[in-house]
Design a protein around this nucleic acid. Structure first.
Lengths: 202, 202
DNA sequence: CCTCCATGTTTACAGGAGAAACTTATGCAG
DNA sequence: CTGCATAAGTTTCTCCTGTAAACATGGAGG
């Protein structure tokens, strides 16, 4: 077979390749039936090869989740850096970026908040999640300083904002934001209601 | 063995027994590694017996999710029926009931919103979810009529309220409402921020 | 009383997680 | 350059799961 020499015995960067394959599957598959063997198969290696790079299935899942948080953070940061006039508009943009990210990577987003991605046993995953959360927190603090957001405890704003965005994202990818229930543009509508509660300008 | 006669060959109500076992496991296990065979084992029947009552694993999961929505609806209705003075207080009570339900049944709550419980292929599950959502919607409409909530589109209030409550529940059972991030009592704090945006009394 | 059928059980098979033993290539010591 | 230690693959094995098929049982209706 000519295939024998298509790829050297040693892959070169199998770890990266496995992660890429898995991320692609997560972005594509709605079903979310993640299988280590299928990742290996699609990457073109034997089903035991991944164990040379990840202790077990969950270790790979946690690494994927970590990358997800990094990417999500980047999306939100970019959305906030578009030179929008008000802090309120920046919050809206970051929130919509997060929900857009979830809709484009439903499997990955679910994974990031699933019990498979246990943050209590992986400091780097925990750090990545904290860092992304920190982006939101920074925006809220800035908004309070410039007088956009009400001077209540910033932790209250943070909990409210985070829960709202995460809840909308989860409902969106679960296809539960049906028009019959919540109107035609539920995301900005809901965010506006929340922002009315967060902002000073009534 | 004396066990041979402990239970008659025909269980009597195996369907119910399987559901009860599964619900107990869901309430207990944080890990959420649901296995049909283990449900059968713990119920004391052979691993193939469940197939006489459920087409496949997912059919059982959907039935469990349906029961979850019914129970959640009951919890919320009860919380609203405590004779609380304001509609705002009733919303707060219903929201906390929902989040409390999630914390007491993390596995079940996750299931209810997971892709395993596909509402598009099970009308009775879809109906149960819609009905529970309807409780929230009814409360919001009542609140608008009595002047508690602002006269914006009720769908906006519904999307905001639902997302907020669901988001808080998901974050709570993912142990992501850490004090370092969101203060010591994030749930009421966040709900108050949202309610400030929903209510007329500023 | 006998027979049917719903509801059980046993057996069988495919596919996944993960461990262990084996193989190959690569980099480094001499 | 030679040769070996080792990282990175592969094969093989065991245990577990979901699910189908064949078989067994016992209670209800003729």
């Amino acid at each position: 077979m000519s295939e024998t020499r298509d790829r050297p015995y040693h892959h070169g960067d199998l770890r990266r390749a496995l992660i890429d394959t898995a991320l692609n599957m997560l972005a594509t598959d709605q079903n979310w039936a993640f299988t280590l063997r299928e990742v290996a198969r699609r990457t073109g290696v034997s089903h035991a090869a991944p164990y040379k790079h990840f202790r077990d299935r969950e270790t790979l899942l946690r690494e994927l989740a970590r990358i997800g948080f990094v990417r999500l953070g980047k999306s939100m940061t970019e959305a906030m850096s578009l030179g929008l006039p008000s802090t309120r508009a920046q919050f809206m943009a970051a929130a919509q970026a997060c929900i857009g990210f979830a809709c484009q990577n439903p499997g990955l987003y679910r994974l990031m908040f699933s019990s498979d991605a246990d943050k209590t046993i992986d400091p780097s995953l925990h750090d990545a999640a904290m860092k992304t959360f920190g982006i939101l927190l920074g925006l809220l603090e800035r908004g309070q300083r410039d007088g956009s957001f009400r001077p209540v405890a910033v932790s209250a704003l943070a909990a409210a904002g985070w829960a709202q965005v995460h809840g909308l994202a989860m409902l969106a990818i679960s296809h539960q934001l049906l028009e019959e229930k919540v109107g035609s543009a539920p995301v900005p509508a809901a965010l506006d209601v929340l922002l009315d509660g967060m902002c000073c300008t009534d």
